[in-house]
Design a protein around this nucleic acid. Sequence first.
DNA 1: TTGAAAGCGATACCAC
DNA 2: GTGGTATCGCTTTCAA
Lengths: 331, 331
Amino acid sequence: MTIYDIACKAGVSTATVSRVLNHTGRVSEESRRKVEEVIAREGFIPNAFAHSLTTKRSHTIGMICPVISDANHAYPVAELTGQLRENGFEVLLISTGSYTESKRAGFASLINHQAEAAVVIGCSEDEQEAEDFRYAAARLPVFIVNGRVEGENIYSILCDEEAGACGMVKRLADMGRRQILYLYDSDTYSGHCKRRGYEEGMRRYTGEEPFTVRIVGEETSSFFQTKETVSRLLAGRPFDAVLSADDSLAIGAAKALREAGRDPVPMIGFNNTVLGRCATPELSSFDIDMKQLCRLTVRTLLDVLQGQTAPSCLKLEGKLVERASLLDFES
Amino acid sequence: MTIYDIACKAGVSTATVSRVLNHTGRVSEESRRKVEEVIAREGFIPNAFAHSLTTKRSHTIGMICPVISDANHAYPVAELTGQLRENGFEVLLISTGSYTESKRAGFASLINHQAEAAVVIGCSEDEQEAEDFRYAAARLPVFIVNGRVEGENIYSILCDEEAGACGMVKRLADMGRRQILYLYDSDTYSGHCKRRGYEEGMRRYTGEEPFTVRIVGEETSSFFQTKETVSRLLAGRPFDAVLSADDSLAIGAAKALREAGRDPVPMIGFNNTVLGRCATPELSSFDIDMKQLCRLTVRTLLDVLQGQTAPSCLKLEGKLVERASLLDFES
DNA sequence: TTGAAAGCGATACCAC
DNA sequence: GTGGTATCGCTTTCAA
């Protein structure tokens, strides 16, 4: 069923049907009624491809997200998808299997499918990836949520996690802790920022050598791995507090301490996930306010698509949410 | 840049370029080389819309998922998206904001965008929704992951959660528990199955009246709500075990007991999420093997798209994963 | 207000 | 092997 069939049955031309469909141009009340009636009766749904082919607008936004099943990614995907839809856009989702996989093919798909823009959840810090971004940006605007790549037509919307991590170290130092262990797993841009912040904080507030440990294992729920790793750590260099790049790691560490019969130490995670609330004691966590990041991303995207200029980098502050994992140590 | 430009620069016709692009028909080695060279040099990416318009194949699968940020949904979205991509399909994602929102508009979008099939994560049990499914199924095959709707061109792939829930009650009854509290939140098809299973189990194995409590609150992380609700419950009808429709609820219940200074009781959750592992004690949970469900969904989808017949309903068994929340009570 | 017709970018049949 | 051309479904001048 095409616009042509509708035109015949309604006794008008395809041009008129098109006008009715798009609420464009002037159509007599009578024609409109007739056409709408036929469309409803036949349950006609126009072909968006043919539409896009002529209008050169796809109303489609491409979204690239490594490992959506990671709750930290699922949330922005949900939030962005919903908001974009409210603004009349469909979302073409590309889930690269891992954090390290090249985004090149994904970008090519999006371009092939005429996406009007690409939204990417997070990014790495390596040059290869930056090139993929620039390759894509040559053909459509690219928006990075919680990541940063510099370049023409690339917009980064992120939280200042470096300052955040640095502040967390200060918070722990203010509690008298000096030997702060830093746990991390992924090697993303965001990960690097946090780590730099931690190192800076150690330098400024404790004067101790940084003590960072990378958890290697499956990419999601690496907290099983953490428990094991931290258990081994207990025999080595001592630590009196833990800062971790993600809630799950901190929870794994807490479990390791408990199982080893050690006293708990103050702990802070990142991303303020529901995991932290499930844990006992409830975990303090740095909240990067992803909701706000998403809002700003959509706003920036809409602006850019309307030809307005927008800042190429938007950096927000996050805040620490304090719970038992810290408060228990305040006397 | 179009196929026409490429044809000119390569000194061949558009037909030849098309052949090279699609690896179809015969093309002389020389022409192929020439065309490929120009395509690479110009960084040409063909317009998928124009392609689809003529071939009548979009290579796009629509996915409807309420509340992706719910980890139980994020996982299948990730899994399916990855697998479909491996099979040459793009995914058009529609995230309806809530479990109750009508899927009608979503289906219409998918049809409008020429999706070749629709995959839906979960479903409700009401007739209105079933009609939306049938409306969509009249135009494209519809696949439901962990949900069930009967109808032509609708395929359901699910776990037998009714039997699962019933078995969990038996497990608890075998431990000598009779007053088993059932917690649930959402009113989905899957939710109804579990509840029926619980009620059946109570009848068969305990002879007690079912004791079900619905947790009302935000749609995600309803475990805050649970803690509160269960705290109030402690003053009323006594219970000596908890079965819950989702891990988060059970965790909330465990916290409520602990905070009230009550003795713990055996608890079982559903979906075997990472939340259960974060909790203390670690939560036992019924695993519906979502990975396998996703695999079967993709396989069924591919079969149907190739014109082969496929069973309209595939029901798998799940299994209980026992952890401390049960094992601590085995003497 | 309406309709005829020329595209949009690719495919595919049919001659050559 | 190759190229001309009709075609896919819809939009958009341009005349009437």
